[in-house]
């Protein structure tokens, strides 16, 4: 039981790490491509959506690549 949970936790940690790394280029380039309404938005807006970017990075990556 404990082993399984440690493995799951490790996977979650790695997933979140990737999300954190992903959020940097996404803010820089991807955000404006995925949703052009975000152009010119404030820093606070960008901070507010960052936790979501870290968690939903596969979805956003998919949308980014599709465009």
């Amino acid at each position: 039981m404990k082993e399984i949970i440690m493995i799951v936790l490790l996977i979650v940690e790695i997933y979140i790490m990737i999300g954190v790394v992903f959020s940097i280029p996404f803010h820089w380039k991807g955000l404006a491509i995925v949703d052009k309404d975000t152009v010119g938005s404030t820093l606070l807006f960008k901070i507010l959506i960052t936790p979501g970017i870290i968690i939903f990075w596969p979805h956003l990556l998919y949308k980014w690549k599709k465009k």
């Binding site: 949703d35 975000t38 936790p51 979501g52 968690i55 939903f56 956003l60 949308k63």
Partner: peptide, 15 residues
Amino acid sequence: FLMAITSHDFWLKNL
């Protein structure tokens, strides 16, 4: 947590 971080309209549109 998931609900809170996606509460902005940005997520409504982009998810």
